Computed example of a mutant assay.
Amino acid sequence: MAHAKIKKGDEVVVLSGKDKGRTGTVTKVMPKEGKVVVDGINVAARHRKPTQENPQGGIERKPAPMALGKVAIADPKDGKPTRVRFELKDGKFVRVAVKSGETIDG
C-alpha cells in the first residue's frame, strides 16, 4: 500500500486555477477519484428553491472537490509549496518537505 502524500488536516497551497496562490486546510481526501476538498477554496454556489425544511431558500455555498495535482503541501518553514518525500526515522516512515527538509508529521 502506498503512503498518502496529502492527508486530512494538512495545510496546502493551490497551484493553478481561480484560487491560485491561496492556502487552506484539507477537509476531505478522495484517493480513488484523485480529488481533495480544501476549506474555503474552489467554493461552488448552488441556488436552492424554498422547501419545507428551508422555507427561505437562497444561495448555498460550499467547497467543491478539486484535483490532487492542483495542490501542494505548504512548507512548514515558509508556507511556500513543496514536494513531499518519505524517510525512515525511528522505524517509522515520516513525510519530509523536499525544499526545507522539515518533517511534516511525527
Rank of each mutant, 00 (worst) to 15 (best):
Q52G: 10
R83A: 07
V37P: 04
S100Y: 10
R85W: 02
F86S: 03
G40W: 10
G9S: 12
V96M: 11
R95N: 08
A72P: 12
A44I: 03
V37G: 08
A64N: 11
V12E: 05
G58F: 02
A72M: 15
K28I: 06
D90P: 00
K77G: 01
K7Q: 14
A72E: 15
A74L: 11
F86A: 07
R95D: 04
T23L: 05
R48K: 10
D105E: 11
Q56R: 09
T23C: 02
G58T: 07
F86H: 06
P63I: 08
T27S: 13
K62D: 08
K8T: 14
T103C: 03
L68D: 06
A72V: 07
K7C: 12
E60D: 12
M30T: 01
V13S: 08
R95S: 08
K20R: 15
M1G: 11
K80Q: 14
D78K: 15
G58W: 00
G58C: 10
N42H: 06
R48M: 11
I104G: 04
D10I: 06
I41C: 02
E102H: 11
H47W: 00
P65H: 14
V38Y: 01
F93L: 08
A97L: 05
I59C: 05
A45T: 13
M66I: 15
V71P: 13
K92E: 15
Q56F: 01
V38R: 01
G34E: 05
A64R: 07
I6Q: 15
G17E: 03
K5S: 01
A72Y: 13
K99V: 01
K70M: 09
V29I: 09
V36F: 10
V71Q: 13
V13W: 04
I41S: 03
K70E: 14
I59W: 01
V12Y: 02
K8S: 06
G106K: 08
A97Y: 07
K20E: 08
G34S: 07
K8M: 13
K80S: 10
K62I: 05
E53R: 14
K28S: 13
P76D: 06
V13Q: 12
L88G: 00
E60C: 00
D105V: 02
G69C: 10
I41D: 02
V71S: 13
Q56W: 01
G24K: 04
L88E: 13
A45K: 15
V71A: 11
P81W: 03
V13A: 10
R22E: 11
V71F: 05
R83G: 06
D39E: 15
L88P: 02
V29K: 09
G57F: 03
G34R: 08
A44P: 00
K99T: 02
K49H: 05
G79W: 14
R61S: 12
G21P: 05
V84P: 04
V43M: 04
V71D: 13
A44S: 03
A64L: 02
N54C: 10
